[in-house]
Simulated scan of single mutants.
Amino acid sequence: MSIKKSIVAALIFGLIAGTAACGNSGGVKESGLSNIKTIKIAYLPLTHALPVFVEKELQDKKENKYKIELVKYGSWPELMDALNTGHVDGASVLIELAMKAKEQSIGVKAVALGHKDGNVIVVSKNIKSPSDLKGKNFAIPHRQSSHNILLGQMLKNVGLSYKDVNIVELPPPEMPAALAQGQIAGYSVAEPFGAKSIALDTGKVLFESNELWKDSICCSLVLSDKFINSNKDVAKEVVSSFRDAGEYIGSHKDEANAIAKKYLNLDDKVLTLSLKWISFNDLEITREAYDSLTSKIKEFGISSNPPAYDDFVDSSLLR
């Protein structure tokens, strides 16, 4: 064979080998032994979503069957649209929004609590009791939320109802400024936005959530039925690691705080206050806690037909 032909043959062989290698590189570990599944998890930048941030950071340091890709959204409607249309595999989300999606025949399952407790009723300093809110503006992030239930329960305890206050829905980041400017007299929302008003000394805590509703459920980790059914083993690992991330937050506070700052850009005072009210241990959604939630959803007119525990909650992935 001539030198020219030998060079051509070598080039052709190299091209074929390179093409084959490129075809196998996507979604494969460097060892080439197993595929890595990428799971897209939607979130809003909230302290309540800390377990998904911690899980991602811990998973990035280990060899796994899966990789978490966090997808940030600016509002609950945007996030739910992504979840409902299959643009993400799961989400850290207000559980009532996921329940409403299930009512509308969207294939989703709640697989773990996002946190326990961790909500506060924040009011302006001149508000002494819930009765002082009568006729005033009170903000919640969404009608389909535990914050709405907390408002309803607080009013009920003093003989009032929703009709006695002017309920407004505001994006969470706008609430501290609205309170400071006197546009609203109080609000209830996911952290860290309650802590911000306290840190700025423009508001005060009237109630913590556990004073109004013991073992209240707020946010949850939700996965799509499609993802669970197609990736059962991986789904179990994701949920198990999520639970472990919750335990890690309690036992590695400095590391968890550093991760929270990375995703939330909070100063120390706001973060410390925010985490003071929240627990991330024992994140199983129990039937008892869920039944309490559905009872209050019906009582306060949020939904007349919330999904049953067995239809909506998949606790098997956490065990």
Rank of each mutant, 00 (worst) to 15 (best):
E55H: 02
L113D: 07
H87E: 10
K102N: 02
D60A: 04
L113F: 11
S75G: 11
N64Q: 11
K67P: 01
S75W: 08
K56E: 13
V93F: 02
E69M: 08
V71Y: 02
E103I: 01
Q104F: 10
A91E: 09
M80W: 04
K109F: 04
E57Y: 00
A91M: 05
D81W: 04
Q104K: 12
T85S: 08
K65T: 14
D89W: 04
V54Q: 11
A91G: 05
S105I: 02
A112I: 06
K65L: 13
I95S: 07
H115P: 02
M99F: 03
L79S: 07
L79E: 15
K109R: 15
N64S: 13
E55Y: 01
W76I: 13
A112Q: 12
L70M: 10
L58K: 06
H87K: 14
Q59W: 03
H87V: 02
H87R: 13
D81I: 01
T85V: 06
A98G: 09
E96K: 06
A98R: 00
K61T: 07
K102C: 02
E78W: 04
I68G: 07
V54K: 03
E78L: 09
K61N: 10
G114A: 08
H115F: 14
K102G: 04
A82S: 12
V93Q: 07
E103H: 07
A101M: 06
N64V: 08
Q59E: 11
E63P: 03
T85Y: 12
I68N: 09
A110R: 13
K67G: 04
S105P: 01
V111P: 02
K62W: 06
E63F: 00
Y66F: 10
